[in-house]
């Protein structure tokens, strides 16, 4: 902003924005607070906000009873694995489209995007059936593959828009300097694109972590990630607010932290580069 604002105006802005920000954040805050209460305090009437006996008991109980670590581990493997796999497949594809564009490049990009728009429910049964046939139902491998495929268009798109910003002359210079294609991608492109690749990684981990259609429908016990873990609280255990809160807090904490780091890239990733 080019000009100074009166302190009064700035104070009003600040108060309004903080009030609204806290209001929006409140459900998360409340969940986190509740996770440290006893069950009795969690449903006390009137509700207690800060002045209660803080306890870690709920976390211990949740971990013990539902084996939180196993679900967490599944989430980590599935979200991380699908993203890494997607990057490994996506980097060469994005390189091709960004640096060796042809008349069809745009069509291919648009087509890839269109696969992302296929409603999952429309292909639920075929995938379900294929998973049974291939023995992939309720396996981490199967879920990793599916999440990789649904996020691959976003990965390629994000990488493509980042690669586009790298001048082609630098890669040509590497080629003149005697670098092979592999060396060109490994020594020049990848280090230069680290910020872009990192944000692609981050955003896709978030998307995969929170994916709640395939993870609910293609897993049962063995491969279920945190989305399914939480869904299992829907009843009747959901009535134990403190424990539900502890479980929820554990499920969202890792991603909240990652999300705060990647908020700027989020826009570009989710609008397919249409808003920067």
């Amino acid at each position: 902003m080019a000009r100074a604002v009166t302190p009064r105006r700035k104070t009003i802005n600040t108060l309004a924005a903080w009030a609204i920000g806290l209001l929006i954040f409140f459900p998360i805050l409340w969940t986190i607070l509740t996770s440290f209460k006893t069950e009795a305090q969690a449903i006390s009437d009137p509700p207690v906000f800060l002045f209660f006996d803080w306890t870690l008991e709920n976390y211990a109980v949740v971990q013990e009873r539902s084996d939180y670590m196993r679900f967490l581990w599944n989430s980590v493997i599935i979200a991380g694995g699908s993203t890494l796999l997607g990057i490994v497949i996506g980097v060469p594809a994005a390189w091709s489209m960004a640096f060796v564009p042809s008349k069809r490049t745009k069509d291919i990009l648009m087509w890839m995007l269109s696969t992302k728009m296929l409603p999952a429910v429309g292909v639920l049964y075929p995938i379900y059936l294929l998973f049974i046939k291939l023995g992939l139902l309720d396996t981490r491998v199967g879920l990793t593959l599916v999440l990789m495929l649904i996020n691959l268009p976003i990965i390629i798109w994000m990488l493509y828009t980042y690669f586009k910003e790298i001048p082609g002359e630098i890669l040509e210079a590497a080629r003149m300097d005697g670098a092979t294609l592999k060396e060109e991608i490994l020594y020049i492109l990848t280090p230069m694109a680290v910020p872009g690749i990192a944000s692609t990684l981050l955003l896709n981990i978030i998307l995969a972590w929170n994916e709640a259609f395939w993870t609910l429908n293609l897993t049962a016990a063995k491969a279920a990630p945190l989305t399914a873990f939480i869904a299992s609280y829907s009843s009747p255990e959901g009535l134990f607010y403190a424990k539900l809160s502890a479980a929820s807090t554990m499920a969202i904490a890792p991603i909240l932290i990652l999300g705060w780091f990647s908020q700027k890239q989020l826009v570009r990733g989710l609008t397919f580069g249409a808003v920067k």
Binding site: E169, I170, E172, A173, R175, M176, D177, P191
Partner: peptide, 20 residues
């Protein structure tokens, strides 16, 4: 012959230095 093997060196308009 691919560019690397021609024994030529090129200086680009943007210099094309490796920023990292």
């Amino acid at each position: 012959i691919p560019p690397a093997k021609r024994g030529l060196a090129m200086v680009f308009q943007s210099y094309a230095l490796y920023p990292h």
